[in-house]
Design a protein around this nucleic acid. Sequence first.
DNA 1: GCGCTGACTCCCC
DNA 2: AGGGGAGCCAGCG
Length: 110
Amino acid sequence: MARAPERDRDAAWQRIYATVDSIPRGRVGTYGQVAVEAGLPRRARMVGRALRELPPAMGLPWFRVLSAGGRIALEGAAARRQAALLRKEGVRVSGSGRVDLAVFGWSPEE
DNA sequence: GCGCTGACTCCCC
DNA sequence: AGGGGAGCCAGCG
């Protein structure tokens, strides 16, 4: 069997999930960062898609993933929900939904 | 198979 | 602070 394209795609999704799962409590990462870590440079949108389709039952810390610059990507009630989850674990979220990456940003090496 | 959409990001004005 | 354009590419009609 040479290779199964479907398998590769699933593998990519698996890496995305694994990367998100590796973001430690009290820290945050960005879509672009997760994409790079998952071996999918420039594919931040895929990460967003993967998270959107994410079954809540998987229990992944999706709320620790933000847009570039530390902004919450969601809006309205969903954004408030995410901010609440982050604050609950000690991450400071401004009223406008911004997180200081210099303070709470995650470095894969740590 | 083509075209639009989008939990994104970077760059320029 | 806000707006436009381009690159990326999986999913869906």
